[in-house]
Amino acid sequence: MKTPVKLRVNGQAHEIFVEPRKTLADALRDDCGLTGTHLGCEHGVCGACTVLLDGDPVRACLMFAIQCQDMEIRTVEGLADGEELHPMQRAFWEKHGLQCGFCTPGFLMLAVGALERKPDMDEEELKEMLSSNLCRCTGYQNILAAVRAAQAEMQ
């Protein structure tokens, strides 16, 4: 049943051997050792597992690993440049955009992916974009503030 799958994650190749039904999220966590991608619902609503697939934010719980052969995957582990945090990570820290931190990797990848595609989103577009993921701690206020601050820096 298990099949070899080649995943390219944060610029590194991972040759893994998984069942075709294994989700991308589980493959990242169990087979690539990248546990920063979190599972909050496993039915595509909460967005905690958001990763970038060829630049697009996707739910890693709704993809099979085998569908992602030869695609460029980016996860939260690849955001910082060594010790230097990505502007989005820094902004979440400065603006207190996280409490328990469980949803944070998903929000970081969502916002980075969306702003790389469309850097000049206005307030309403940002809010609309952020409404695709769920956070239970912050009430979103500081997440929005962080994304706004990072947007300015990313441009």
């Binding site: 990248l34 920063g36 996860t75 582990e77 955001l79 820290w93 207190h96 996280l98 931190g101 469980f102």
Partner: peptide
Amino acid sequence: VRRLEDRPLLTGEGRYAGDI
């Protein structure tokens, strides 16, 4: 002040139950 907790949570290095 900024939180002491945040850095690992921002870089994917958190250790929640599922990560152990």
